[in-house]
Design a protein around this nucleic acid. Structure first.
Length: 421
DNA sequence: GCAATCGACTCAGAAAGATCTGT
DNA sequence: AACAGATCTTTCTGAGTCGATTG
């Protein structure tokens, strides 16, 4: 199977760039009737118009269902949602027909099917640049802006709640503090056939360590089984409240045993219309970026501005615990970079030595030694594999010594070039 | 009345693919 | 000019959130 896939890959790679582009354009033309939808008289791009093909389910982290077969979806499994007078899209597989055609104006999906692994709903939606998506995206940020007007009151309220006699109020107030301060997700309960991950409301005693007087260490698997590891100095009241909630409980017990995500959200809605736990993430991420960008120095050029922006944006990613695993070849690439760096430094030393020597002797040229990588010897009649092998040989071959005489100007030019890098 | 389940939506990381850049 | 490697963009689909429905 692997061999087959490898050879398919090689076949694809062998197609010249121009032809590949042509193939791509033709394919785009062919699928156009599936990728564009008319919504309220306007053409909109469709997001995922291809049905997920059969595969072995993998899942993220330690998923109980990993390895199960995700079965093929047939037209009969699919419900189409279109306007009542619109023509039904032609079924692309001869001899088959759509399972159901309906006209539901209250939802935004175009097609629906059931996932054979989880029995969950899967949809075809419009793309992110569609009216439906952009309007709801804008509404999300407006809601976060609205929270800005309520936040002081809400914070005052939960600080008071830490000391409440009512355990439910205490749980809710401490949980809300964590959601606000650490941008934790709300953390719905999860089932037996899902990976064991948690959010705020599902935190267990085993996920926390208390370091008096006021530091809490968090260590748990969050969404996508991404580890959240953070040692935080928290407000004293929250510390005491949280510690009290963890006391007399087993390590596998829920900290917020009486709190549910829906009761928390219900409470939030009583404080501000439309407020839910996830709004705090949007709010705090946006506010953090805004604050960091404002305290920016005077970046001179676009390049510096970009570096600055990316740096601040990374801070927000840290707040939200967004992280990507390193690419497979990362170590190798870093290794190559450091070798290159060393070589460049050595070359710089040699150039500087030559410059000094010329200055001392008042000559206008000097002998320099450069260590260079041999060039691959590529012949026109070589096959792709032979070329690759030759390139590999050249890149792994020892450095060659090249001695040459350089004029003073070219030495200075070379030094400047190294500094540019 | 309430816990469990469902439906519809956003969020998110991996991998594939396209494009850019330096040699 | 060609090519390889780096980087940026897109695709894919699994993993959440949250309100509604159901038993």
């Amino acid at each position: 199977m692997q061999e087959h896939l490898e050879s398919k890959k090689a076949e694809k790679k062998a197609i010249p760039a121009a032809e590949r582009k042509k193939i791509r354009e033709e394919e785009a033309e062919r699928v156009k009737k599936y990728t564009v939808a008319t919504v309220d008289g306007k053409e909109e791009r469709v997001g995922n118009f291809r049905i997920e093909p059969p595969a072995l389910f993998l899942g993220r982290g330690e998923h109980p269902l990993m390895g199960k077969v995700k079965k093929r979806i047939w037209p009969e499994d699919i419900t189409i949602n279109i306007g009542p007078k619109d023509p039904v899209p032609e079924c692309p597989i001869p001899g088959h027909k759509w399972g159901k055609v309906m006209h539901n104006k209250a939802v935004t999906w175009l097609a629906f099917w059931r996932d054979t692994i989880t029995n969950g709903s899967k949809y075809v939606w419009l793309a992110a640049d569609s009216k439906f998506k952009t309007v709801s995206d804008a509404a999300k940020f407006e809601k976060a802006r609205k929270l800005h007007k309520y936040i002081e009151k809400i914070r005052k309220d939960y600080r008071r709640g830490w000391k409440s006699e009512d355990e439910l109020v205490r749980q809710r107030s401490v949980a809300l503090y964590l959601i606000d301060r650490l941008a934790l997700r709300v953390g719905n309960e999860k089932g037996e056939d899902e990976a064991d991950t948690v959010g705020c409301c599902s935190l267990r005693v085993e996920h926390l360590t208390f370091n008096d007087p006021d530091v809490v260490e968090f260590n748990f698997l969050g969404k996508d089984s991404i580890r959240y590891e953070n040692s935080v100095k928290v407000e004293r009241g929250a510390y005491l409240g949280l510690k009290k909630l963890a006391q007399k409980k087993k390590s596998s017990d829920d900290i917020f045993s009486r709190l549910t995500t829906s009761s928390l959200n219900e409470y939030l809605r009583s404080l501000m219309e439309g407020l839910t736990a996830k709004v705090f993430r949007t709010y705090n991420a946006s506010l953090t970026l805004d604050r960091l960008l404002r305290q920016g120095g005077q970046q001179q050029n676009v390049n510096e501005q970009l570096v600055f922006y990316n740096k601040q944006n990374k801070e927000v990613a840290i707040l939200c615990n967004h992280q990507r695993s390193l690419p497979k070849k990362h170590d190798e690439q870093m290794g190559k970079l450091s070798v290159k760096y060393e070589e460049t430094i050595e070359w710089l030393r040699e150039l500087e030595r030559a410059a000094k020597e010329m200055k001392a002797s008042r000559k206008d040229s000097a002998d320099v030694t450069q260590w260079v990588r041999p060039k691959p010897d590529l012949k026109p009649n070589m096959t792709e594999e032979q070329r690759a092998a030759e390139r590999r040989r050249a890149s792994e071959a020892p450095l060659e010594k090249v001695a040459k005489r350089m004029k003073v100007d070219s030495v200075h030019l070379a030094i400047a070039r190294v500094h540019d890098r």
